[in-house]
Design a protein around this nucleic acid. Structure first.
Lengths: 163, 163
DNA sequence: ATTCTTGCAAAGCCTTTGCAACTGC
DNA sequence: GCAGTTGCAAAGGCTTTGCAAGAAT
């Protein structure tokens, strides 16, 4: 899943989440479910939505409910551990902590997500924002189309159809 | 609303929609509601969602139902008249026909949408896709943050708070 | 006359919430 | 023990759909 080099971080996601919870105005608890979720997400997942996470954690024998999944995902975003992904009309998530800023290619056929970084992005963002006196907080950049494999498959099929 | 120069087109949106409907394998009808919707959208709107369109058309005295709005919006996209916008978790739409390719800045405070074009975008897209042998079909690029006005307002307030 | 379209009401899907039982601190 | 958390069931948004009545060709 992870194709980009990870960023060096001093704490484990689990520790970072515990500290985040403890540091709230009203301290929040680092419960079993919350611990399971951070560990699960940072061991196995990268791009996922609430439902996928719920199903997979249940299948792996974890005790979590859907409401807890939704509630905890929000907190993981607030804690800076996850980044919400704007992809179609559902909410997706990916690792933020320990993972570099990047954007995505999404295959409309097999739904694979390919991560990319482009050296010009930073400049482009800065220039656009300067032009409009816009103070950027974040961005979402997504390219839709056919990935190499799906495109090859299609081309091959087309060639066969002609025979 | 429209800040970018429009693209010269030979047909009116209404004509284009009628032709699209008539040219389907099973020809579809250019009904009163469909005609009202194309006209309404291309006279007044640019960025909107199904609900806003429904409310505003009703407020302006048009006879349309919610299901018809949803069904017709899909067809307008299929006809190449509208472009769906990936913005948060709801479906938004904007003019496609007669309007140039562009991207958006969205103000998180006042929800204003600012359109922009950047000369480097085309190259960047091409390069990223080449690198990954990806056949692009489209993209969605959105910058979130504070617009000039909201940023000014905030800065002013901060200065006042210090007095 | 035939076939497509409309609107209503109802269902679907994803997400959130009220509340009583429970659990971490 | 107290305050925060969980899970259930139910409700909430937004969107889609089945169906009978109505309209376009």
């Amino acid at each position: 899943m992870s194709v980009l080099p990870t960023v060096a971080v001093s704490q484990s996601p689990e520790e970072k989440f515990r500290e985040y919870l403890a540091s709230r105005p009203k301290p929040q608890r680092f419960t079993g479910q919350r611990r399971d979720m951070v560990r699960y997400i940072f061991t196995k997942h990268n791009h996922f939505d609430a439902d996928q996470l719920f199903d997979e954690m249940r299948a792996d024998g974890y005790q979590v409910s859907r409401p807890t999944i939704y509630r905890t995902l929000k907190q993981l975003v607030a804690a800076g551990l996850l980044r919400p992904l704007e992809l179609g009309t559902r909410k997706y998530y990916e690792h933020d902590y320990g993972y570099p800023q990047h954007d995505h290619l999404v295959c409309v056929q097999c739904h694979k997500m390919i991560e990319f970084q482009h050296p010009d992005m930073e400049n482009l963002l800065r220039n656009v924002c300067l032009d409009h006196q816009f103070q950027m907080q974040g961005h979402s950049f997504l390219i839709r189309g056919l990935c190499a494999e799906c495109n090859r498959a299609k081309t091959t099929k087309r060639r066969l159809d002609l025979v």
